[in-house]
Amino acid sequence: MNQKIDHLLNSLGFGFPETPEQIDLFNEVYRDYEFRANPSRIDPMKILASVRQKPVEITRIDYHKRTVLAAEIVHELHREWSLGHVKLQKLIYLCQNTTDMAIHTNFLKQAMGPYDPKLMRSIDAQFKRNEWFEFRRDSSQKYWPLGKAGGHKEWYERYFSKQREEIQTLIDVFRTMKTSKVELIGTIYACWKEIIEEEDEFSVESLVPKFYGWSDHKQKYKLDEIRDSISWMLDYGLYPTG
């Protein structure tokens, strides 16, 4: 097989020198050859652009995975009076960031913390289309089961079997927690993560300005609430590590 490939390459003019005579001839022919790039034609910006990672293509599976994760959270918590859009999003955010999970989200720096408004509209629409849950804004119970509630389970086992225990722990920890408290912890987590990404040393003193600088909405939280929440997160191991 190798001989056939060598013969083909030689026939096309791509053969390599093998014998001492061929090597000597090669060196003689290319004795004065020198390759030089033209610096005036090198564009550093084009080089950087060419090596930048291409945007990740978002597929239907990506959308389905995040819907299935949301369905599991809602399946567990829909009877809790505190579950609504904000709490659901914070739990998705914490699941994504505290477990080895690849789902597509675009959490923005919103007043209520990291929040993705398109995500909620998409999830609510998919819930209804799959007949899993319906979101009722004016009801005290926001998510109501539909005819095929629980139908996400097969997909959940397929997508999140490795993270199942960690997700369940998060669900149980936040099960009865007020939305404002979940919002507080979610925002602290995001600020903490920023500090790590900026390669700064974490401390309460470095986090507090980031927290209050997030939005004017955060002024409703007292400094003691922030400190107590950080201590709680340390006790539970619920914080970013880089």
Rank of each mutant, 00 (worst) to 15 (best):
P20H: 08
T169W: 08
L238C: 03
K54A: 14
Q89V: 06
D172H: 13
P39D: 05
N2E: 12
T98E: 05
T99L: 10
E72W: 06
E165T: 08
W214C: 01
I123C: 05
T187F: 05
P55N: 14
A70F: 03
N10W: 12
E205M: 09
Y30G: 00
N10F: 14
W132N: 01
L88Q: 04
V173I: 14
E166D: 13
D62V: 03
I103F: 06
L146S: 00
K181P: 00
Q163H: 02
E21I: 13
G242Y: 06
F16V: 15
L9P: 06
H152L: 12
F174E: 07
R158G: 02
G113H: 07
L94Q: 02
E183T: 09
Y143F: 14
P39Y: 12
K128N: 09
I5A: 11
D138N: 13
I61A: 12
Y212K: 01
I61D: 15
Q110I: 02
D235I: 13
S229G: 07
R79V: 11
Y63S: 14
S139E: 10
P44H: 02
K178W: 09
E197D: 10
I103K: 05
I171E: 07
T59K: 11
Q22S: 09
K153F: 08
R129G: 02
K222M: 12
T67G: 01
W144P: 00
E157Q: 09
D228C: 00
E225H: 01
E154K: 14
L48E: 05
C95W: 04
A102V: 07
D32V: 01
R31A: 15
W192E: 04
A111F: 13
L170S: 04
I188M: 08
D24P: 03
G186D: 07
W144V: 15
H75F: 11
E154I: 10
Y156L: 01
E183I: 03
Q3D: 13
R36M: 13
Q96V: 01
H85L: 14
Y189D: 00
T98S: 09
E194P: 00
M101L: 15
S82T: 11
W144F: 04
I92A: 02
D62T: 07
Y221W: 14
